[in-house]
Computed example of a mutant assay.
Amino acid sequence: MIDVVSAAWLADRLGGVRVVDVRDGWEFDGIGHLPGAASIPFDEFRSADGDVGMLPGRDVWERLLSNAGVAVDDHVVAYDDTHGVFAARFLVTALLYGHDPEKLHLLDGDFSAWNRERETTSDASDVVETTYEVSAPESTPLVDFETVEAALDDPEAVIVDTRDPEEFAAGHLPGAANLDWRELVDDETRGLKPRDELDAILNDVGVASDRRIILYCNTARRISHTYVVLSHLGYETVEFYEGSLTEWNARDGALVEE
């Protein structure tokens, strides 16, 4: 599973894990970054012309990780400065391209949270290039249009829309529950809310660990964060609709307005 790790956990392991900063390059260079972090800006691994949906493509991904000094057996910790939503997208992409999920970690909090109490630097990181090779994952959470369409009639499935309530009201999949991804993070700490609060929020919308959960948003960024959180909490059956509403609308999938 992809897990969420504390700043203290990471501080004790700097130098022993590969840290990836997915903010814009000017932020990495001009504002500073975690010691030893490699820069892989979100826009560089975000493409609609890749392998599936919004994935960047095998060749692009291998080049980015090789240049950032990531090896296939590295433990990787990703962070951003937006409560982890862009970093989560990086980690899910790594998962879908075969990186061991047990070695993928989201920093709880973000750059701003780390910067409150810990060292950052503007010095260039010493990165030794690798030869990263994509592999097929042992299993994949990806589901396609047809699978999601069939799940509309599955009483065991909970289809979860992770967009904000206004977007949800403007049009959502029939029977979907609305779980705005930001409900799971604390604006003050910039990390996840306490476990009991997370459980209450999830239970309120019917997202239970013994149910089949299918996630979607617009372009698979926001569901990445929710996917990582559910993975961290131990949910076992979480499916990831990569095409999300971009594909759903293009294929005239059914929508409901409120």
Rank of each mutant, 00 (worst) to 15 (best):
P165F: 07
E258Q: 14
A170D: 15
W114T: 04
E117D: 13
D199E: 14
V148S: 03
R222C: 00
Y241L: 00
D29Y: 07
D74A: 06
T140I: 06
D80A: 12
V128Q: 13
V20A: 05
V134H: 08
D180C: 12
V17C: 02
A157G: 05
E129D: 10
F28H: 13
P155Q: 11
P35R: 13
S139T: 15
V76G: 02
S244F: 08
E149V: 06
D123A: 14
R58V: 15
D180P: 12
F240N: 02
D108C: 08
L96P: 03
S209K: 14
V5F: 10
G191Q: 11
A208F: 05
R58E: 15
D80I: 13
G206W: 12
A37N: 06
G191N: 10
T246P: 05
E138I: 01
S66Y: 10
A151H: 04
P194M: 12
C217P: 08
P56W: 09
L14V: 12
H232E: 02
L215H: 04
R163H: 09
I159P: 01
F168S: 06
A124Y: 10
F111L: 15
V92A: 04
V207S: 02
D80F: 11
F86V: 00
S231P: 01
M1N: 14
G84H: 08
D210N: 13
G109L: 08
G69T: 10
R46M: 02
A157Y: 07
A48G: 06
V143A: 08
T140M: 06
V70K: 12
E146I: 05
T140F: 05
D123E: 15
R251G: 00
Y79I: 04
D196S: 10
N218Q: 14
T121V: 09
T131C: 03
P155K: 10
H172L: 03
D24V: 06
R63C: 01
D180Q: 15
V229C: 03
I40A: 07
D154H: 08
S39Q: 12
E236K: 14
R211Y: 00
G84A: 09
E138R: 13
Y235E: 07
L65W: 11
V158I: 12
D21I: 06
E188V: 14
H99E: 08
Y227I: 07
D43K: 15
T189S: 15
W61S: 06
D80P: 12
R182D: 08
D29P: 00
L55H: 06
N203A: 13
D43G: 12
E27I: 09
V148F: 02
T226S: 09
R221F: 00
D154V: 04
R46C: 00
D154C: 03
L215A: 03
L64A: 04
Y79A: 01
V76D: 03
A68M: 08
D59N: 12
V85F: 05
P35C: 11
R58D: 10
P155D: 09
D123K: 15
L152E: 03
G36D: 05
E62D: 03
Y97Q: 07
A78S: 11
L233G: 02
R13E: 02
D164E: 13
L14E: 09
V20F: 05
R195G: 00
